[in-house]
Design a protein around this nucleic acid. Sequence first.
DNA 1: CAATGCGAATATGTATACATTTTAAAGCAA
DNA 2: TTGCTTTAAAATGTATACATATTCGCATTG
Lengths: 228, 228
Amino acid sequence: MRASDRAYVTLLDEIQSGVLAPGAVIGEVEQSVRLGVSRTPMREAIGRLVTDGLIRQQSARVLVVTGFDVDDIESLFEARRSLEEAAARLAAVRGYSETFSSLADAFDTAHPERGVLAADAYYTLIERFDAAIDAAVNNVYLVQALRNTRTHLARARRLARDNQDRLVASTAEHALIARAIAEGNADLAAHATHVHLHHALRSILASITADTPGTATSPTNLTPKGQS
Amino acid sequence: MRASDRAYVTLLDEIQSGVLAPGAVIGEVEQSVRLGVSRTPMREAIGRLVTDGLIRQQSARVLVVTGFDVDDIESLFEARRSLEEAAARLAAVRGYSETFSSLADAFDTAHPERGVLAADAYYTLIERFDAAIDAAVNNVYLVQALRNTRTHLARARRLARDNQDRLVASTAEHALIARAIAEGNADLAAHATHVHLHHALRSILASITADTPGTATSPTNLTPKGQS
DNA sequence: CAATGCGAATATGTATACATTTTAAAGCAA
DNA sequence: TTGCTTTAAAATGTATACATATTCGCATTG
């Protein structure tokens, strides 16, 4: 693995997980020393993160981790709505019935209510689902945009703790979407996606607004509105 | 202007304009010597173009200009459909009536039928329109994706020569979209955008298929289907 | 004659030295 | 005391030397 890739993956994970909080200053030398690579691959890694929108230039000489507030989450879901509805529609008409039928079965028989371990299984399934969508959509431009949203979605997920009830409901929603795609029902696939995103957003926002006033729980790294 | 920016802009323009044809091998040293910059900024420029999807890694050590064929154009318009319809909808509900009302007037009074000079004016108007959409949508994720599609759209436009009739029709279509947004009519804005993209795609494909068999006209740099 | 392996050449990946620009601090003047 | 100018330090931008990996060609062997 190249040094620039290691640096990128490490920083990406640290930003997504909140180890590097919004507003944290990213200095080339500081980070390259810390991660044990030279400035050249570090610059490449930082450049990629800037393109991703996870780091932004605050002034001519200072890079900071991008803020991520409630408004950003709402923007993100606006974008997801557009992209994932289109993706679901396209997947439904591309004829990958077997793949999505099998995925629907997997979602049907998943039991995320059975504790923490099952939550990992849930996210593994989601990954499989996303990969299947990407393959079925077969459109580099759309898939590129979808992947970008997932990069930011990881930050939103971290702010909202996994909720057992929500995981169960989301599993059922995905089963419906997968089934609709398998059956070639583009309208249902798109509308079920819309409904799913509605619930997912509501759940995330509820989780955050329940936390933020308290401050007593674990640190959220949620950027105050309007400074992202 | 930084050397890496100069290199990026130059290569971007050369790829979009077809000077660097699909399949052309991009060597770091070769390009850095040609453009008079060192390898470091050249690597940065190439990295950005890879992210853009205009250059891709063909093997471990050779980068080539990405192909761009009829399938890619259709994929691109699928993505645009999704993104621009969503953008039009959002712009319509954000309340920038004055801006889009003024744009609608500008489209109404534009006269692209008055020769080549007016074609430049047409594209200037389109740029103003795109900028207004970006500002109104006010969603970094969506706008980022939109900008990406425009990067590739430039290649499609080049393959299809400007058609006087099409420019006139497109102007009218944009006037309708802008008016719909100004009036807050999200449905009409979205559907008019859909119709516009349908006509635009048809025009581009017609222009290409009319050219390709002939080969007698100017070189199109159109990648044969399936090798992009 | 073909295939495989070894070696040399070349291109990319990384580190670092050097250049340039920006920012901040200090000193001087109003 | 405040503001402006100058200067110095530190960070980014660029060039280049060095390390590593890949590819192509040639030779040897089956």
